[in-house]
């Protein structure tokens, strides 16, 4: 049996809507923005309307159930329910949209911050393209000293960083919920694993306020750590971050991998 056209149209719309949600929010884990989804659904509805009404016969079939409900006395109960429920739904929609909320107004952020090639850190201009972690070579040269430095880095981390970035380095520290954007999850393969140590050094040392102009307006609450930590402490923390998560820092010496940052 063929489904009534009105049902077909409704199923297509619901299907497309759920499709967007399932594909984006669950399968791809990249949530589809509500503003965009609204517009997408608007145009999909227009498209469905177009396909279902371009000739008289289809249009008649489409509106027949609606017409019957409104005009046929048999469906009086259904009609009255619909006529009550729809205004109520619209009213609820209006109410919930105009209800004042505590959510901050939407802000537009333009670009993913690309690092500058040089940055001023501890009053000196350093070249981020060539900068290296001064302790990294101990990893092969003297593993014992290296482990010691990692331990020192861990201490610095626990004292300063874990409140936001979490004691498991997963971005879920006690304060994380209050922050927006959320603290970075270092366990994620898409974060420090894709970055050079010099990039981390720059981000840690200059914090949110040190983000380049093209990334503005950016409201990252990361402190400017060069005002609290020494240069050595920062490098040691970086050692710890990679050591604990088991990632290796990216280096330009190797071939660039395709899934780049």
């Amino acid at each position: 049996m063929r489904l009534p056209r009105l049902l077909q149209a409704a199923l297509v719309l619901v299907g497309v809507y759920l499709g967007f949600i399932v594909v984006f929010d669950y399968m791809l884990e990249a949530v589809i923005p509500g503003s965009l989804l609204t517009m997408y659904m608007f145009f999909v509805t227009v498209g469905v309307f177009m396909v279902f009404t371009y000739d008289e016969e289809r249009t008649r079939e489409l509106v027949a159930p609606i017409k019957a409900m409104v005009e046929n006395p048999i469906y009086r109960g259904a009609r009255n329910t619909v006529f009550i429920v729809i205004p109520l739904l619209v009213g609820y929609g209006v109410y919930s949209r105009t209800l004042p909320s505590f959510e901050a107004p939407v802000e537009l952020r333009t670009i993913h911050p690309a690092p500058p090639s040089t940055a001023k850190i501890y009053g000196e201009r350093v070249n981020l393209l060539t900068l290296e972690n001064p302790f990294r070579h101990y990893q092969t040269d003297d593993p014992e000293i290296f482990a010691e430095y990692v331990q020192e880095g861990a201490a610095v981390y626990i004292e300063n960083c874990q409140y936001c970035h979490g004691d498991k380095l997963d971005g879920k520290g006690p304060y994380a919920e209050g922050l927006n954007p959320t603290p970075l999850n270092f366990q994620d393969i898409g974060t420090i694993a894709q970055l050079q140590e010099s990039y981390l050094y720059w981000r840690i040392a200059t914090g949110g306020p040190g983000l380049p102009k093209e990334a503005a307006p950016w409201i990252s609450s990361m402190p400017v750590w060069q005002e609290f930590l020494t240069e050595e402490e920062i490098w040691k923390v970086i050692l710890f971050l990679y050591d604990y998560t088991g990632h290796a820092p990216r280096s330009w010496g190797e071939a660039h991998d395709a899934g780049g940052h």
Partner: peptide
């Protein structure tokens, strides 16, 4: 993209990998 704060949070930033 026009993102609300919760969406921004869930995406971890303004960049959308698909859109």
């Amino acid at each position: 993209l026009v993102l609300t704060n919760s969406e921004l949070k869930s995406l971890g930033g303004p960049h959308h990998s698909i859109l």
